[in-house]
Simulated assay, not measured.
Amino acid sequence: MTTNVLILCTHNSARSVLSEGMLNYWAEMLGKDVRAYSAGSAPSGRINPFALEALANAGVDTAGFRSKSWNEFVEDGAPQMRIVFTVCDSAAAEECPYWPGSPVKVHWGYADPSNGKRQGFELTRQAIGYRMLQLLMLPLDTMSNAELQEYLDRISKS
Rank of each mutant, 00 (worst) to 15 (best):
S13M: 00
A14W: 10
S16Q: 06
V17P: 00
V17M: 08
L18A: 00
S19W: 04
S19R: 01
S19C: 04
E20V: 00
E20Q: 05
G21S: 03
M22Q: 09
L23W: 04
L23P: 01
W26Y: 15
W26P: 03
W26H: 15
M29S: 11
M29L: 11
M29E: 14
L30H: 01
L30S: 01
L30W: 08
G31F: 06
K32W: 00
D33Y: 00
D33T: 07
V34N: 06
V34A: 04
V34K: 06
V34D: 04
A36E: 06
A36W: 03
S38D: 00
A39T: 05
G40H: 07
S41D: 02
S41I: 11
A42D: 08
P43S: 09
S44C: 08
S44F: 14
S44T: 03
G45F: 07
G45R: 05
G45E: 02
R46A: 11
I47V: 13
I47W: 00
N48I: 02
P49H: 03
P49G: 06
A51H: 04
L52W: 05
E53R: 15
A54G: 12
A54C: 11
L55E: 05
A56Q: 12
A56Y: 01
A56F: 01
N57F: 04
A58Q: 08
G59Q: 12
G59D: 08
G59N: 10
V60M: 02
V60Y: 02
D61Y: 03
D61M: 08
A63H: 14
A63N: 15
A63S: 15
G64A: 11
R66Y: 14
S67E: 07
S67W: 08
S67G: 08
K68T: 10
S69R: 07
S69A: 12
W70G: 10
W70Y: 15
N71C: 04
N71Q: 11
F73H: 03
V74W: 01
V74A: 11
V74F: 04
E75N: 09
E75P: 04
D76R: 14
D76Q: 13
D76S: 11
D76E: 14
G77P: 09
G77E: 12
A78I: 08
Q80F: 02
R82I: 02
I83R: 08
I83T: 12
V84Q: 12
V84R: 10
F85K: 04
F85P: 11
F85E: 06
T86D: 01
V87E: 02
V87H: 02
C88T: 07
A91K: 13
A91R: 12
A91I: 07
A91F: 13
A92E: 15
E94C: 12
E95D: 11
C96R: 10
C96T: 11
P97K: 05
Y98M: 13
W99A: 15
P100H: 05
P100Q: 11
G101I: 09
S102Y: 14
V104T: 13
V104A: 10
V104N: 06
V106C: 15
V106R: 13
V106M: 14
G109Q: 06
G109H: 08
G109S: 09
G109R: 06
D112R: 10
D112M: 09
